[in-house]
Write a protein that binds this DNA or RNA. Structure first.
Length: 273
DNA sequence: AAGGTTACCTGCCCGC
DNA sequence: TGCGGGCAGGTAACCT
């Protein structure tokens, strides 16, 4: 489900609701997520000091120097609810706080996963150690992208969806940023012109920033922490628009499968070179 | 080392 | 109406 803008939206929504809250108990459905859940007992009686995003992970920093790391997978959702509100279908973890609030984790497909790590050791954690650049930071540049994919013969779309290259760009925003940059998704990653790497980087940054501004993209089940959908899906120019007219040149948008992921592009606006 | 395939899981939509 | 196949926003363990 969530790419970087959706995770950022969840973090921004949760932050004011749970920062400072002291954890009193944790319960779970008994079903595993992608991996077994961590032992939450060291977090009991600890307050959440801050909530951050890194790549597509949520980070909950606790006062004892531990960080709860959480990935939403494809269908993960967090909701802050009162303690007396009933457990929803597919709700798998419930965190109870001293202020009568609860943080609930729902995940239909259970591709989400969580882990615990000392905050100072986050960079060495296996989930983070090999990650590429954060797309919204200045070190993600045309030169960086060019240098990072110079040995890659895969498609440019698969390259920008690879966490080792740049984090947070999933299937939707990969197609959308390539359209904006006028680059064909099937183009071999190391064959772009220098200016195209810079252009693509610029468009990845702007499309992600615009999507964050819109509260993310809701296709079927993404919801913000307040339970409402994000609105960026209305701004899709190619994603899911197979056979519909290009918004620029009116010829039909095409669909191609790359790395077993659907990819959408305009053959005229994104010529293969 | 890069790249292809498979697996994890549920729900929905489509065609027969 | 029912069933099977394919597909869905992600990641990583395996192979070659």
């Amino acid at each position: 489900m969530p790419e970087l803008p959706e995770v950022e939206t969840v973090v921004v929504g949760l932050r004011p609701q749970i920062t400072g809250a002291k954890l009193v108990s944790v319960s779970n459905s008994g079903k595993n997520l992608r991996y077994p859940l961590p032992d939450f007992s060291t977090l009991l009686q600890q307050s959440i000091q801050s909530v951050q995003r890194r790549a597509k992970y949520l980070l909950f920093h606790f006062e004892n120097g531990q960080t709860l790391i959480w990935h939403l997978g494809m269908t993960g959702q967090f909701h802050v609810l009162r303690q007396d509100e009933a457990m929803a279908k597919h709700e798998h973890v419930t965190f109870m706080f001293t202020n009568d609030n609860t943080l609930r984790y729902r995940d239909t497909r259970r591709f989400g996963y969580a882990g615990l790590c000392h905050t100072n050791d986050l960079d060495q954690h296996p989930w983070f150690a090999k990650l590429g650049a954060e797309p919204l930071l200045d070190d993600f540049s045309g030169n960086y992208l060019h240098d990072t994919v110079k040995t890659r013969k895969t498609s440019i779309k698969q390259a920008i969806m690879d966490n080792h290259v740049v984090v947070g760009v999933g299937n939707i925003y990969a197609s959308e940023s390539l359209f904006r940059a006028g680059i064909n998704p099937t183009q071999v990653a190391n064959s772009l012109k220098p200016k195209q790497y810079a252009l693509l980087v610029q468009h990845i940054k702007t499309v992600l920033a615009e999507a964050i501004e819109a509260g993310g993209s809701t296709i079927s089940d993404f919801v913000k922490a307040d339970g409402n959908p994000g609105y960026f899906a209305h701004s899709f120019k190619v994603y899911g628009r197979d056979k519909q007219p290009c918004l620029i040149c009116k010829i039909p948008i095409e669909k191609v499968v790359l790395g077993s992921r659907a990819s959408f592009f305009c053959p005229r606006c994104q010529p293969l070179k």
